[in-house]
Simulated assay, not measured.
Amino acid sequence: MKVLMFYELAEGGLAKAPAHFASHQARMREFHGRGVLLMAGPYGTPPVGALGVFTSRAAAEEFARDDPFMLNGVVGRCTIHDWNEDLA
């Protein structure tokens, strides 16, 4: 089982993203280096949100709690869901 974390941009969040991107990216690299963030990235054109794939709910919650995008109004909503991936 994996855990999916969905970010939805806040109103005006896209304009705020560049100022906080470096610290957000550093956090992603930290969690990826620990092996708990498998992949992440924005979706939509232009972006309307982002998706992260984590190894546990605890890791996803920890990431979101202190993510600069969450703390600085880039993200308006975060949801976390268990995912039973199937390679059929």
Score class of each variant (00 low, 15 high):
residue 32 H to I: 03
residue 40 A to P: 05
residue 54 F to E: 00
residue 53 V to T: 07
residue 60 A to I: 02
residue 17 A to D: 01
residue 83 W to A: 14
residue 81 H to S: 10
residue 73 G to V: 07
residue 67 D to K: 11
residue 51 L to Q: 10
residue 2 K to P: 03
residue 28 M to Q: 14
residue 41 G to K: 12
residue 3 V to G: 00
residue 4 L to N: 00
residue 29 R to C: 06
residue 25 Q to D: 13
residue 57 R to Q: 07
residue 25 Q to N: 13
residue 42 P to T: 14
residue 54 F to S: 01
residue 66 D to N: 15
residue 58 A to L: 02
residue 24 H to Y: 06
residue 79 T to W: 02
residue 40 A to E: 12
residue 46 P to C: 04
residue 88 A to D: 08
residue 17 A to R: 15
residue 19 A to I: 00
residue 22 A to E: 15
residue 73 G to L: 10
residue 3 V to K: 00
residue 17 A to S: 06
residue 45 T to I: 08
residue 35 G to C: 06
residue 54 F to C: 01
residue 30 E to V: 11
residue 57 R to A: 03
residue 29 R to W: 02
residue 20 H to I: 07
residue 27 R to T: 12
residue 66 D to E: 15
residue 66 D to Q: 14
residue 48 V to Q: 10
residue 8 E to A: 12
residue 30 E to Y: 14
residue 1 M to E: 10
residue 19 A to C: 06
residue 54 F to N: 00
residue 27 R to I: 09
residue 25 Q to R: 15
residue 32 H to M: 13
residue 24 H to T: 05
residue 15 A to I: 03
residue 2 K to S: 11
residue 79 T to H: 06
residue 33 G to M: 11
residue 66 D to V: 13
residue 66 D to F: 14
residue 88 A to V: 03
residue 57 R to L: 08
residue 35 G to N: 03
residue 82 D to Q: 05
residue 82 D to I: 06
residue 22 A to V: 14
residue 71 L to P: 06
residue 48 V to H: 04
residue 24 H to S: 07
residue 47 P to N: 04
residue 21 F to G: 07
residue 15 A to V: 09
residue 35 G to K: 05
residue 88 A to K: 03
residue 82 D to C: 07
residue 11 E to L: 05
residue 76 G to L: 08
residue 11 E to C: 02
residue 82 D to T: 07
residue 63 F to C: 09
residue 22 A to R: 15
residue 63 F to Q: 01
residue 68 P to L: 12
residue 78 C to G: 00
residue 30 E to T: 14
residue 55 T to V: 10
residue 65 R to A: 15
residue 77 R to E: 11
residue 27 R to N: 14
residue 83 W to T: 04
residue 29 R to V: 09
residue 18 P to G: 08
residue 50 A to E: 05
residue 32 H to Y: 08
residue 4 L to V: 13
residue 85 E to R: 10
